[in-house]
């Protein structure tokens, strides 16, 4: 009856050997290629350092002006613009300006890279069912695997710092934009596409002139989600050496500083709300043509 009581496992020794082999293999890989990979990411690191320094060196009134301007350009709403500027003022007033700038820097770079990589991937998935079948499970893993698990190999490879933090953020934040680009393109009205075909459109003309413009609301929802998810990774990224609002939160957790945690946490929330409202308003604005506005 022993067979039924205990699950037939691989055995302690074999398991240990297996783990050792995997760890050893990866360590070997790190030793061999670690430097090359680090070198590959070096320009990115330089850019991030430069961008963060730029934000920190810029006089704060100018930043407020730029934030207000961008919020206005995106939303065309006085309420949202004033709210954004006011949030920044309050966050700065409570001594979190530098951390805010650092967070802003990594979120901006991460979002930009997610868009740069995610939209082409989404397009590829929309064009080929095989690509979709291959990429979808990868996205599922990226979204569900605990962040700490993929932090291990990333840190082993690249050590602690901005680039591994950025990679961790991107792994977590890129799935929505890929998925929603794919979905948006697949949902484009078949009749509009047939019309484009009937008038002799090329693949490129169809993609740029019909599919992407008509998928834009969905793509934009993807960008919005990506920003939100990137922000939610700020604390975890700070564990591997990314500066920003996550660092004080982490310190607050380990030392039970309620006020510190609350203030920095709320600052992240405020940033999230600003990004969300501005990008959503912008998303609404670019699809104005969808609402009929009567005749005349």
């Amino acid at each position: 009856m022993e067979f039924l009581e205990e699950f037939p496992a691989i055995g302690r020794v074999a398991l240990r050997d297996l783990k050792k082999t995997i760890d050893g293999g990866f360590r070997e890989f790190t030793r061999t290629y670690g430097e090359d990979i680090e070198g590959f990411f070096d320009p990115l690191l330089q850019f991030m350092v430069w961008f963060e320094k730029l934000l920190l060196a810029t006089p704060w009134p100018l930043i407020l002006l730029v934030i207000g301007g961008l919020a206005w350009l995106g939303s065309r709403s006085i309420k949202i613009t004033v709210g954004s500027v006011l949030s920044f003022v309050v966050i700065g007033y409570f001594g979190m300006w530098e951390d805010l700038m650092s967070t802003l820097a990594i979120i901006t770079v991460a979002t930009f890279l997610c868009i740069l990589l995610g939209i082409p991937l989404g397009i590829l998935m929309a064009r080929s069912n095989r690509a979709q079948a291959m990429i979808t499970p990868v996205l599922d893993i990226m979204q569900t695997i605990p962040a700490f698990v993929y932090l291990i190999p990333v840190v082993m490879l690249l050590g602690i710092g901005k680039v591994p933090g950025l990679i961790a953020v991107i792994i977590y934040a890129i799935p929505p934009i890929v998925r929603l680009t794919n979905l948006g393109i697949r949902l484009v009205d078949k009749e509009a596409l047939e019309a484009a075909d009937a008038f002799g459109a090329s693949h490129m003309q169809k993609l740029l002139g019909v599919q992407i413009p008509l998928a834009l609301p969905n793509i934009f929802a993807g960008v919005n989600q990506t920003i939100m998810m990137a922000l939610s990774m700020v604390v975890i990224a700070s564990m591997i050496g990314v500066a920003g609002l996550g660092v004080p939160v982490l310190r607050a957790i380990s030392n039970q500083y309620l006020a510190l945690g609350l203030m920095n946490g709320l600052a992240i929330v405020a940033l999230a709300i600003i990004f969300d409202r501005v990008s959503q308003q912008y998303g609404h604005r670019i699809q104005k043509h969808r609402q009929g506005q009567g005749h005349g």
């Binding site: 009205d189 009749e191 509009a192 047939e194 019309a195 484009a196 009937a198 008038f199 002799g200 459109a201 090329s202 003309q205 002139g209 019909v210 413009p213 008509l214 834009l216 699809q287 043509h289 969808r290």
Partner: peptide, 29 residues
């Protein structure tokens, strides 16, 4: 492009283009 042009039952216009851009769609292609 050169020989055929088509009109559709459900119009199949481009919702994101203005009327004049729709009318010029075939020429743009």
């Amino acid at each position: 492009q050169a020989k055929t042009a088509m009109v559709f039952q459900k119009f199949a216009l481009m919702p994101h283009h203005t009327v004049i851009d729709n009318a010029g769609f075939g020429l743009k292609m």
